[in-house]
Computed example of a mutant assay.
Amino acid sequence: MISHRTSRFLVGGMLFALAATGCTTVSQAETTQGAGAPASGSASTAALGVNEAARALLPAEIRDKGTLRVASDPTYPPFEFYDTDNKTLIGWDADMGDAIGAVLGLKVEHVPATFDTILPGLASGKYDLGMSTFSVTEERRKVVDFVPYLQGGTGLAVAPGNPEKLSMDTATLCGKAVAAQKGSIQSLDILPAFSKECTEAGNPAIDLQFFPTQNDANLALTSGRVQGVMADSVSLAYQGKLADGKFEVAEGPDFEPELTGTALGKKSELLPAIQAATQAVLESPAYAEINTKWGLPASTEITPADVVLK
């Protein structure tokens, strides 16, 4: 049996390399997954009033502009994806972003972007916030700041019935083709580390296949080009339902549960306001309503005290 080592994330250097890369818009045609999804918006979110203490923390430029520009990769239901009109970005992050905006008295502009260009876009000032279920890692914290809003771990999507008997146990993955989305912790750290464990134990390496969108990775699984896909377990379970059960999450506990949250440019003047607004949302009925609406289990919820990182 191959043991799992504590992961060390490698994204930091890549962010600097990507900083000069232009952000590309995700194709609407390839990411539409809204059929059967909940309607956009939230009654509790709509009823949230402005928190004047949080609003007072806004930089004058943002307060005067009246808008937050929030980037998300709309290929990752239930967190961010297109509604049936192929243009409206909906999902957990969209609702949470709207709730934060409501607390701050700001309009939120949701901007579609490919996942691995969002953090460099924050560093260059292209976006105010990145809300795309970013895992809060020490390496990422070297180049961006985070305001946590959830916690969760990695799961493995497999064909119905899991004919290959795969799991988040490394030994079951050696020699198998496993996909992930480019720029995710699964592609940058977890899968390469697992593959190294395989070879160090004298087993075949994992056939690592990384795709620009989560949809592409899922399609590789349903078309038989890979035997598994690694991503956030909650998102994978939701995506499997939207795909009419063409894939499912392998049984077993999540791998290395950790905080996820809103990303901001390093030392952004927005940080105190976003922290205060996020705490206000977590203390309101809107947080539980958004989680229930998008099918997130209670285990993903955090407390207001978790919002400010040490």
Rank of each mutant, 00 (worst) to 15 (best):
I100H: 04
A113P: 08
A159V: 09
K87H: 13
T88Y: 14
P112S: 08
P77M: 05
Y76L: 10
H110I: 12
N86G: 01
A94Q: 11
D93S: 09
D93T: 08
G175M: 05
V158T: 10
V143W: 15
P112D: 05
S72K: 03
K107D: 12
I100W: 06
E109I: 03
A180H: 09
G183Y: 10
G105K: 01
K126T: 13
P78N: 06
M168G: 04
A177E: 02
V103I: 14
A177R: 14
V103W: 00
D145E: 12
Q151R: 15
P77Q: 06
L156P: 12
V111S: 02
K126D: 01
T154V: 11
P112V: 03
Y82H: 10
F81P: 00
K87V: 13
D145S: 12
I90S: 08
L104M: 03
F81V: 03
V147D: 06
F146L: 01
P148Y: 03
G125A: 09
A157Y: 06
D169Y: 07
T133A: 12
L122Q: 13
R140H: 04
P148V: 09
V144K: 01
I90C: 15
D128F: 10
V70T: 07
L166Y: 04
P160S: 07
H110Q: 13
G130A: 10
N86S: 13
Y127I: 05
T170D: 03
D83P: 04
G152H: 07
A123H: 12
A157C: 11
V143Q: 11
